[in-house]
Computed example of a mutant assay.
Amino acid sequence: MTQEKSPLLITTGEPAGIGMDIVLLLAIEGKLQDFSRPMIVTADARAMQRRAGELVAAGVLTDTPVWQTIDIADDDFTADGFGADHFVKRVLTQGTDLESDFLLLNIASAAAVVCGQVDIANSAMVAKQLEVAHRLAANKSVAAIVTGPLQKSALIDAGIKLPDGSMFSGHTEFFMQQSHCEKVVMMLANQAMKVALVTTHLALKDIPAAITAANVRQTVQIVVNDMREKFGLAQPRILVCGLNPHAGEGGHLGVEEIEIINPVLQEFIDAGVDITEAMPADTLFTPRHLANCDAVIAMYHDQGLPVLKSHGFGDTINLTLGLPYIRTSVDHGTALDLAGRGGASATSLYQALVMANEMADKS
């Protein structure tokens, strides 16, 4: 394991799912060594050892990867803990075995982990992984967070709350609230395109009311800032979808473009940003336009993401823009039926690591 750069941290998420499987797959293939960085993985140490054995028995792994287990000390959770001069120095000093594929940060589960069987007793351990990841990323102890899949329903059923006391609703909301951000932006990316969303998981009937000048303005600003700061693009080229068919057809099919979206976009154009006014989505997502852009901003989830996923579902990843650190994620679920049995693909995790590494190098 190299120690040339700051580590990447992978959270394995729901222990009954494939989070550990896909880390082990990349490890045995030697792909975790591709990034010239130490790799820190959060998981229950006993569960990881058991999962590796199950995958070997199933013929998925030819051997058990090599890792070093690091236990969290009580003082790692003090006010001075999780700092580069404390936690990571200790971890990387202990993790000196260059033959190791990764460092396993042991976060113990409350109950025994059984492949494919979610136990809400282990939901607190899943939440602890996210807390640890946030702390390490917030103080620059790790270069980026790469999140594996979690079972949102299990955390809800276990009564796990977001920092503001509301129902747990996902990685994105957790990291946003922990970082005290007013807004973050979901972006999905693959080799074909990057698509950011003004609104995310809303019913179609609720989307027009959410397309406000403030929401559009914040979204565009976050995309511009992160394309510059985290992707290293001094002048990112951005295409923007209209809300309505044909971008409103001059007001005949809707007035949101005229009254809300384009006035905001004109502000950015006047400020020198390379961004379009609202374009019809059915023509924006064509090779001619995509060849000359760095990112697309879509107004809602199913306007942009079906097109993106049709161009590379297996290698698509999720990014959260607007955080004070880099966070990428796999774009698939826990696949409980595949855990410990084979059939899981590590492609999305690998691409999430590639993106996190590239962003870390440029930021």
Rank of each mutant, 00 (worst) to 15 (best):
M1D: 02
Q3A: 14
P7Y: 05
A16P: 04
M20F: 13
I22W: 01
I22R: 02
L24S: 01
L26I: 13
A27M: 09
E29I: 06
G30T: 07
K31F: 02
K31A: 05
L32Q: 03
F35T: 02
F35G: 00
S36E: 15
R37K: 11
A45F: 07
M48N: 06
R50D: 14
A52D: 04
E54A: 13
A57N: 15
G59N: 08
D63L: 14
V66E: 15
Q68N: 11
Q68W: 07
D74A: 15
D76H: 10
D80V: 09
F82K: 03
D85H: 12
F87K: 02
L92D: 07
G95V: 09
T96C: 14
T96I: 15
T96V: 12
S100L: 08
L104M: 14
L105T: 06
G116T: 02
Q117M: 14
V118N: 00
D119L: 03
D119A: 10
N122M: 09
S123G: 05
V126M: 05
K128D: 13
A133I: 02
R135Q: 10
R135C: 06
K140C: 03
S141M: 03
S141F: 01
S141N: 12
V142C: 02
S153R: 13
L155R: 06
I156Q: 12
I156N: 03
D157Y: 08
A158T: 13
I160S: 11
F168R: 02
G170E: 08
G170W: 04
F174P: 01
F174L: 11
F175H: 05
H180P: 01
K183Q: 14
L188H: 01
M193V: 09
V195D: 00
A196M: 01
L197I: 13
V198R: 00
H201D: 05
L202Y: 02
L202R: 03
L202T: 02
A203V: 07
D206M: 02
I207H: 08
P208K: 08
A209K: 12
A209D: 14
A214W: 06
N215E: 08
N215I: 07
Q218D: 14
Q218K: 13
Q221L: 09
V223S: 00
R228I: 08
L233H: 07
I238Y: 01
N244D: 13
A247K: 01
G251P: 05
H252A: 14
L253V: 05
I261M: 11
P263S: 08
A271R: 14
G272M: 13
V273T: 12
I275L: 10
T276I: 14
P287A: 14
A291M: 12
A291D: 15
V296C: 05
V296L: 11
G304M: 07
L305E: 14
V307K: 00
K309M: 08
H311V: 02
G312I: 00
G312L: 00
F313P: 07
T316P: 00
T316G: 00
L319K: 04
Y325N: 11
Y325H: 10
V330P: 00
D331K: 04
L336P: 03
A339Y: 11
G340V: 06
G340P: 04
G340H: 09
R341S: 06
G343I: 03
S345R: 00
A346N: 03
T347L: 10
A352P: 06
L353K: 02
E358V: 08
